[in-house]
């Protein structure tokens, strides 16, 4: 009889351990704190604000909205790209909001929410010269050597002439000189580049992308309840217009980096 009780106890404990870990959501509510990993040097997604010395950005705004929904305090843990998965697996953070591109490889070790941002292969061209992807076939296009942008363009538009440069500023100089008619990179990178160009009024980023990388929230593997809550919250934010507001705060027409929003939450699940 005694043996049996012990056995039940052992089995009970074994059963309990994964159960206790599998509900991070309950833990967060109990602790009253949501710990989120965010970038501290990747504007405008996550970076240290020069005035307040706090980490701010688009990712942080989304994390903040989620903490409000849960009714808990938000604690930001600074991270770099390489630390995102280790922080999650080691249980140091509950979620990752750090321009986290959804890939099959990563999905094996973390849970991803539905995407809340997409960064795609886009273009800079002189104003009014490029309006649709079909035009690309007849153009000379500057790309960065070895990027996925170059490979995508070659595969999708074999008739376009590609000239590969060592980095984006070189490609942009070639565009200015007229050696190429468009240059290609990820949208957010292009807008960051354009922000620092003195004659930026002459150029534009046409509102289309030829491919998309989807950015999602990372949660610990197997935390279904937490992932579901993130998904519901993201959909709510889109439905009540708060997602658009967050976007406009960082990429809206009045910001230094105006980029037309071509992806909305729920466009891809």
């Amino acid at each position: 009889m005694k043996k049996l009780t012990l056995l039940t106890l052992v089995f009970g404990l074994v059963g309990l351990v994964p159960l206790a870990h599998a509900d991070r959501l309950a833990d967060i509510k109990k602790a009253g704190v949501l710990r989120v990993a965010a970038f501290d040097a990747n504007p405008p997604f996550g970076f240290v604000d020069a005035k307040s010395k706090k980490i701010v950005g688009l990712d942080v705004d989304y994390a903040d909205a989620l903490a409000k929904k849960l009714g808990v305090k938000l604690e930001i843990v600074p991270t770099n790209p390489a630390n995102r998965i280790p922080l999650l697996s080691a249980g140091k953070v509950d979620l990752v909001f750090a321009n986290f591109t959804i890939t099959e490889e990563r999905a094996k070790v973390v849970n991803f929410s539905i995407p809340y941002f997409a960064s795609g292969t886009q273009f800079i061209a002189k104003k009014g010269t490029l309006t649709s992807p079909e035009q690309l076939s007849g153009l000379r296009i500057g790309v960065d050597k070895g990027t996925t942008n170059e490979i995508q363009l070659r595969e999708q538009f074999p008739k376009a002439t590609l000239v590969a440069y060592d980095d984006t500023p070189f490609a942009f100089t070639a565009l200015r000189n007229g050696n190429v008619q468009a240059i290609s990179q990820d949208g957010p990178k292009l807008i960051g580049l354009l922000a620092n160009v003195p004659d930026r009024d002459k150029y534009e980023i046409p509102p289309f992308a030829i491919s998309q990388d989807y950015i999602g929230v990372g949660a610990p593997k197997g935390e279904t309840a937490l992932t579901e809550l993130v998904n519901t919250t993201l959909r709510e934010l889109e439905a009540d217009g708060r997602a658009q507001k967050i976007y406009d705060a960082w990429f809206g027409p009045t910001t230094k980096t105006p980029l037309k929003r071509i992806f909305k939450i729920g466009d891809k699940t």
Partner: peptide, 15 residues
């Protein structure tokens, strides 16, 4: 952007 051997090698390597 001269499409000589080293340029092509880098291109092939990236793919």
């Amino acid at each position: 952007g001269l499409m000589e051997l080293s340029y092509r090698a880098r291109q092939a390597e990236a793919e």
